[in-house]
């Protein structure tokens, strides 16, 4: 069952071609690993799907329907959530406030609507429990470990029932034990039928959770293949350009 489809997506910033004619599909409950060197265009692709940028060319379909996102809020409404590369957390705020940032729960207080912290703490606590994370809703993000911060960023994606979660290097800056935690979180998303696009530079992570692996090189998609049909060596060759390109997914 196809969930997300990109057709001929391209993006240029002035003279820089960040993405060129990228076509890709993602099935329901599938984890797709997206790899590529620095500057290959991975984050740009994520930001296009998430509504931060509009593509210069091409189209995006979510469950067969055309998407035309002008703002991140539009993508969120359609069930697309993102964990950004730098996590996009506010250090000076609590875990719960970060989870609900931009989507605060409100309640009536006389004539005005105010933020409903009690419900936010409760809901955030439930999400962390679901993710089996020890993160506490009232703690300030500033004092959290890398793994807990990831849990906050991931919990945020689960607020509304998401259909697709995009993760931009969720395991880049954290300890080995925490990486295992995050990979577990990704498997939990998948088990709930959510499609995940995982960007990572870490070969072992990609090979342990992804069903498929795609490779971007200088803005072009040079490979799209099932994980069991490839190897870390081959993927490395594709990333560097030692291997030109491979298409190995049954259409």
């Amino acid at each position: 069952m196809e969930r997300l489809r990109l057709e001929g997506v391209g993006k240029h910033f002035g003279a820089i071609r960040a993405l060129d004619d990228v076509s890709l599909t993602l099935a329901g409950g599938e984890v797709l690993g997206l790899m590529g060197d620095n500057g290959a265009g991975k984050s740009t692709l994520v930001k296009i799907i998430a509504g931060n940028f509009r593509p210069s060319h091409g189209s995006i379909y979510l469950e067969g329907e055309t998407c035309d996102f002008h703002r991140p809020r539009d993508a969120q409404r359609s069930g697309i959530e993102v964990v950004y590369q730098d996590l996009a957390l506010c250090d000076n705020m609590s875990a719960a406030s970060n989870v609900f940032l931009g989507r605060e729960l409100k309640k009536s207080f006389g004539p005005v609507r105010i933020i409903d912290y009690r419900s936010m703490h409760r809901k955030a606590g439930e999400l962390f429990a679901q993710l089996k994370s020890e993160t506490r809703p009232r703690d300030l993000v500033r004092r959290m470990s890398g793994g807990q911060r990831q849990a906050v960023a991931i919990a945020r994606t689960l607020l509304a029932e998401p259909r697709v979660v995009l993760m931009d290097e969720p395991t880049a800056a954290i300890s080995v034990r925490q990486v295992a935690e995050v990979l577990e979180l990704i498997r939990r998303l998948r088990d709930r039928g959510i499609s995940v696009l995982l960007i990572s530079h870490r070969m072992p992570d990609v090979f342990s959770v992804c069903d498929r692996i795609a490779v971007l090189r200088r803005g072009e998609l040079v490979a799209d293949m099932l994980t069991e049909t490839t190897s870390p060596e081959e993927v490395t060759g594709l990333i560097t350009g030692a291997i030109d390109s491979i298409q190995r997914v049954p259409a």
Binding site: N52, R71, P72, Q76, Y84, D86, A88, C90, L101, G102
Partner: peptide, 8 residues
Amino acid sequence: NAATLTGI
């Protein structure tokens, strides 16, 4: 940056 990305 986070505020912008979350749609504020």
